[in-house]
Simulated assay, not measured.
Amino acid sequence: MQRRKMTGRLPPLNALRMFETTARLLSMHKASVALHVTPAAVSKQIQVLEASLDVKLFTRSKRNLQLTPAGEKYYAHISTALNSIRHATREISNVSGMAPLKIRAYTTFSMYWLIPRLSSFHGLYPEINIELTTSIKWIDFEAEDVDAAIRLGDGNWPGFVALPLVPNILTAVCSPELAKSLHKLQDLKQVTLLHTLARPDDWRHWLSSQGYDTMDGFNYRNYESSVLVYQAATKGQGVGIAQQALVQPLVENGDLVYPFPYELDMKSYTYYLVMPGNRPMREELNVFRDWLINSAEVC
């Protein structure tokens, strides 16, 4: 095959961006989520780039996507170049005084869900500086310098834009050692139930879903936040009531287990991205909103 000479011209830049993201993630689906396009669009642009270069960049199978030797070499070069562009953009943005995007969330949600994913956002949008603060209080957009907040509730907040994020599924968690003594729900009366003051009804809702109409006979210990509940549970101090989306990392690394196979989906009562409904949204907030929704959808 005779190769076309490309001296003096750049390859299609949109295709180049899609190639760089796909090569980094080795998944067209993940690249499509990161770039807010369809997998078909990613595939088409990579085909355009391969045709432009007259080089195969990937080998494809039903389950795997791998870079060819030429693809690996090309990715090493263009990823360095694109990172330089990102760095230059960040410097120019800082010089021009781009204000940080101020996000308010809960401590537990930030630690176990949002922060682990923010590295992806910073990689895609290094020019946008996220300023993250935590609080359990409701947000007052008129009095506080905050662009958006992540709040727990039913989403029925007139005057606000509220977009649901992760499912709020309640489940019991404890240390692997303590789980050995828990064989039936009645055994929960022999241990301490760890509870957060921020959500005082979680245990009542969960136990009620399992047929317990009264809380009599259960022993409680209260903590200010779920972070403290999860930490106490990992140390074997009792059984915590947890939101599955947040506690899953601790389960995956073996610090906590689910002693019972019972879950309670709180439906519309869940986490929302909340934004003021009476003012134009900054473009940076639009970008963050789209990224956050996509991140929640692929969980």
Rank of each mutant, 00 (worst) to 15 (best):
I103G: 01
I103T: 01
I103Y: 00
I103L: 10
I103R: 02
R104H: 13
R104T: 06
R104K: 15
A105I: 05
Y106M: 14
F109S: 07
S110G: 11
S110R: 08
S110D: 11
S110T: 15
M111Q: 14
Y112P: 01
W113C: 02
L114C: 14
L114Q: 07
I115C: 08
P116Q: 06
P116W: 01
R117V: 00
R117Q: 13
R117K: 14
R117C: 03
L118F: 03
S119Y: 10
S119H: 12
H122M: 03
H122K: 14
H122Q: 14
G123T: 12
L124D: 00
L124S: 10
E127F: 01
E127M: 07
I130Y: 04
I130Q: 02
E131C: 02
L132C: 09
L132E: 02
T133A: 09
T133M: 09
T134V: 11
T134G: 07
K137A: 14
W138C: 01
W138I: 06
W138A: 10
W138P: 02
I139V: 14
I139A: 11
D140P: 05
F141C: 08
F141G: 11
F141T: 12
E142K: 15
E142F: 08
E142I: 02
A143F: 06
A143R: 14
E144N: 04
E144K: 04
D145Q: 09
V146T: 14
V146A: 08
D147E: 15
D147S: 06
A148N: 04
A148W: 04
R151A: 12
R151D: 12
L152K: 03
L152N: 05
G153H: 04
G155E: 06
N156E: 12
W157I: 10
W157C: 00
G159M: 03
F160T: 00
V161R: 11
V161L: 10
V161H: 13
V161F: 08
A162M: 11
A162P: 08
L163C: 02
P164W: 02
V166D: 08
V166M: 11
N168T: 10
N168E: 10
N168G: 02
I169G: 04
L170Q: 12
A172C: 09
V173W: 00
V173S: 00
C174W: 03
P176R: 07
P176L: 06
P176K: 04
E177K: 12
L178M: 13
A179V: 07
A179S: 15
K180T: 14
K180G: 03
S181E: 13
H183K: 12
H183C: 07
H183V: 08
K184D: 06
Q186F: 04
D187Y: 08
L188K: 01
L188E: 00
K189G: 01
V191H: 13
V191Q: 15
V191I: 14
L193G: 10
L193P: 08
L194S: 05
L194R: 04
L194I: 03
H195A: 05
H195D: 12
H195E: 15
T196C: 12
A198T: 06
R199H: 13
P200I: 00
P200L: 05
D201N: 12
D201R: 14
D202G: 09
D202W: 10
W203I: 15
R204S: 11
H205L: 11
W206V: 09
L207H: 05
L207N: 05
S208Q: 11
S209I: 11
Q210T: 03
G211N: 05
G211L: 04
Y212T: 12
D213N: 10
D213V: 05
